[in-house]
Each structure stands twice: as C-alpha cells, then as structure tokens.
C-alpha cells in the first residue's frame, strides 16, 4: 500500500492568558491508502488539535502550529496558502465533527449546503449538483431525500445531522475522511447506524479513515492501526490486534483493564488509574504518565521516553518492559 499521509514531529500550542498549552507534542505517524487509523485518548489529550492541525483549522491566535510537516501525496500541507488549502479540504481530505451544528449553516437548507460544495469543488452545474445531492442523501440513508432537500438543519435529529455531515464530507470523494468523535453525542443504536454507514462507504469508495474517539470499543471494531495519545504525545502505536491483545504501554494496559464489558459478567472491582491526567499548561519534565503509573522507575521522572519500536509494527514511549517490570 502506498503512503497517503505522513505526519512528522507535529507540534501545536495554544498561547492563552494562563500560559502555553502544549496540546500536540511532536507526534509522527503515517496513513496508507484505504487504511483506517483509530486515535484514542481521554478528553483534552490533543486528539482534535492534532487533526485540526492536519486540516490547518487551528484557530490562530491563540493556536500555533509550532513545528513539523504534514506530507499529503508528496506536498507539505503546512506550506500551502489558504486558497490551496481550501482545495485540499473537502476535495482531498474531509472532516466530520463531534457537533454537526457547529459545521452546518443553520440558515441554509441541507440540500443547498451540499450542492454548493459540489458546484464549487467539482464544477458541477446546478442541475447536476441537485441530482448528486439526492444520491448522496440516499447513500447515507436519509429516507425520502427529495422531500428533505429543502429542510433546515434544526429539522433533523442528531443522528440525521451526522448523516448529512457525512454526505457533505463525501460529496467530493475525498481520499481521507477524518471523523472527530462523530458519535459521542449519539445513542448507541444511532452510533451503530453511523459506524455501519462509514464502514460500508469506506469499503465501497476505498477511502482512508482517521477515526478519533475516547471509546476503545469503537476502535476495536473499526480500525486496522491504532494510536493511543496521552498528554499530547503518542504513547503507543500498533496494529489493532496487538494493541488489544498485547498492550505494552502502562497507560494502554491500565485503560483496558479499567473497562467493564457488555459481553462478560463482572463480579470483580474495577481496576482504577489513580490521579488525574496532567495539565498541559505545565507538563512534568519526565514521562507525562509518571505520576499515575504503576511501573514508574527513577528514570521516568527525569527523562521523557521517545516512541520506539518494540516489535514489528508496534511502538511505545516507555522506559519499562511491562512483562518484567524492569527497564527495557
């Protein structure tokens, strides 16, 4: 498979009144053609900031992409001007957000919003755009699409709005779909509809997908590659089976252990991770997980480990081998 997107040492900060928020701290990863990458982590760990940086949608100020490269099909997106970037967004890389109301225009009809994108990006005529919009609405499972064409966003339920967002994102057949917690606000039944839809369309259209979530269950059923983030760092990366069967980073391990499962009876007390995620305004000097880590050794408090290969396709940022409990 060919590499579609390569992110290198991406670093994004927010300069706020309280100080500098270190939201994304030098992360690197690649996305292959047609691949689905899951990014998991708790709220505030930099998931959204990392993909908004890729899309160049970080609000500046207070935000600033301080370093790194985002290579899409051979060109560095961080070097493009705004009009070149507008062409990339929508046409090449499209994004679906957690709250569809923030990205749908409340005073324009659903049909108009989708057909506009087709006219601007694909050079379609009004008539072609209308036909294609109906096809797209049908494709994402909006029943009686022609009678809903003239409806406004508030006339749709949360799940339907998310479908419209997906229809809009897919309008120009992007090669990458970035979905930032698109189902977090929805019921599990509606979440299952949306995930099923994205899987079907992904397989049919051969798109690559980056799916962001805090739910390790969703990623297990959807992704081939997984990135675990903590405090703006990638702490573990690997193939989906390796991450779940053989987690090597103490944070991933602890997180998986703390989750009850719908398919298993559980009588035991839940395992917990003590303490809180760190404040990105003042990160500790060593490993950001050290204050909560069960495997912590002296070195962890002084030096922050870099992401290193521990097995084929499996990388962690940790000084310790969780198998032996000793330094690797």
């Amino acid at each position: 498979m060919a590499t579609l997107l390569e992110v290198r040492d991406l670093t994004t900060r927010f300069h706020t009144l309280d100080g500098v928020v270190h939201a994304v701290n030098g992360i690197s990863y690649t996305l292959e053609e047609g691949q689905t990458l899951g990014i998991v982590g708790e709220s505030g760990c930099g998931k959204s900031a990392s993909v908004l940086s890729v899309m160049r949608l970080i609000p500046e100020p207070p935000g600033k992409i301080a370093a790194g490269q985002v290579i899409y099909r051979g060109q560095d997106l961080l070097k493009l001007n705004e009009s070149q970037m507008q062409h990339i967004r929508g046409k090449e890389i499209a994004m679906v957000f957690q709250d569809p109301m923030t990205s749908l225009n409340p005073v324009l009809t659903i049909g108009r919003q989708i057909s506009e994108a087709l006219i601007v990006h694909m050079g379609m005529t009004q008539k072609q755009a209308y036909q294609r919009t109906l096809e797209l609405l049908n494709m994402v499972g909006i029943p009686q699409a022609d009678s809903r064409y003239g409806d406004y966003p508030h006339q749709f339920s949360g799940g339907m709005r998310q479908r419209v967002m997906i229809a809009m994102a897919l309008a120009c057949m992007p090669s990458i779909l970035i979905a930032d917690e698109p189902t977090t606000a929805l019921d599990v039944t509606i979440q299952a509809q949306i995930i099923d839809l994205v899987k079907t369309l992904r397989d049919r259209l051969g798109m690559a997908v980056i799916w962001i979530t805090h739910d390790l269950g969703i990623i297990a059923g959807l992704a081939e590659k997984v990135i675990v983030m903590y405090a703006g760092f990638i702490v573990e990366r690997g193939d989906v089976d390796d991450i779940y069967d053989d987690p090597r980073h103490p944070y991933t391990l602890a997180l998986l252990k703390s989750l009850p499962r719908v398919d298993r009876s559980s009588k035991e007390r839940l395992a917990t991770i003590p303490g809180l995620p760190p404040d990105l305004l003042s990160l500790p000097p060593g490993c950001p997980f050290a204050p909560r880590c069960a495997y912590v050794i002296e070195r962890c408090r002084q030096e922050n480990p870099r992401l290193e290969i521990v097995d084929s396709h499996h990388e962690i940022a940790c000084w310790v081998d969780v198998g032996t409990g000793r330094e690797r």
């Binding site: 339920s157 599990v188 995930i195 099923d196 739910d215 990623i219 297990a220």
Partner: peptide, 26 residues
C-alpha cells in the same frame, strides 16, 4: 437485543465475529 448488540466491545476478535442488529431510524 438490538440495544445490547449495538454496544462496542473493546476486543477486535470479538468485534469481527459480532452480529449487529442495526435499528432503522430514530
């Protein structure tokens, strides 16, 4: 049955085998 089948399980092997009942509509 539909509600329970919709809940994702944090285990890729189980997820690949699962039969999801997708409810139509809202």
């Amino acid at each position: 049955q539909a509600l329970l089948s919709a809940v994702p399980v944090p285990d890729p092997k189980v997820e690949r085998r699962r039969n999801r009942i997708i409810l139509e509509g809202d």
